[in-house]
């Protein structure tokens, strides 16, 4: 598993602020996923060894929290909010439109590895409903035209 030097250093700094070995699991997994895009089996072993906890402790966390990806995802992870204010303002249409434009079904990653399309609960962007997140950025209120413009503006790399 190729964890970058900066990720390793970030993990070291984090561990230094933790009171227990376990405490770091949730945070270290976030660093791993931010660096690698997902948390694979090798990463689970790495985290368990680095923290001195069991693999089962890491799996326990991974299986509870919905944000971790256990398989590779697209370079752009598109999360469409489906909670009430967004649903009311057309979230289902947002999903349909994205699915058609990207050629990707909800929960799937496209064959070219560019996009993963997900539905999620409240993003805390209800004033911009319907809203979505692409990687770290929030977009809304969305219309079909706005979605197309956003997709066209995404730059790989």
């Amino acid at each position: 598993m190729e964890l970058s030097e900066s990720s390793r250093q970030e993990i070291d700094r984090l561990i230094a602020t933790c009171r227990t070995r376990r405490e770091a699991i949730v945070q270290v997994l976030e660093i791993v996923q931010r660096g690698q895009g997902y948390v694979g089996d090798e990463a689970v072993s790495y985290v368990a060894n680095r923290l001195g906890v069991g693999r089962a402790d890491v799996e326990d966390v991974l299986s509870f929290y919905p944000v971790y990806h256990r398989r590779p995802v697209g370079r752009f992870v598109v999360k469409v909010c489906r909670s009430l204010p967004c649903a009311h303002m057309g979230a289902a249409r947002v999903v349909d439109h994205l699915s058609e434009r990207l050629g990707v079904a909800v929960g799937q990653t496209g064959g070219d590895g560019r996009f993963t399309l997900l539905e999620v609960e409240c993003l805390g962007a209800c004033d911009r409903a319907p809203a979505m997140m692409i990687n770290d950025d929030v977009f809304g209120p969305l219309t079909p035209e706005r979605i197309d413009a956003i997709l066209a503006s995404l730059k790989d790399g």
């Binding site: 009430l84 609960e121 409240c122 805390g124 962007a125 209800c126 004033d127």
Partner: peptide, 11 residues
Amino acid sequence: DESEPGTFKDR
């Protein structure tokens, strides 16, 4: 951890 649908004040 603001996550209640309809809520975005803490953000």
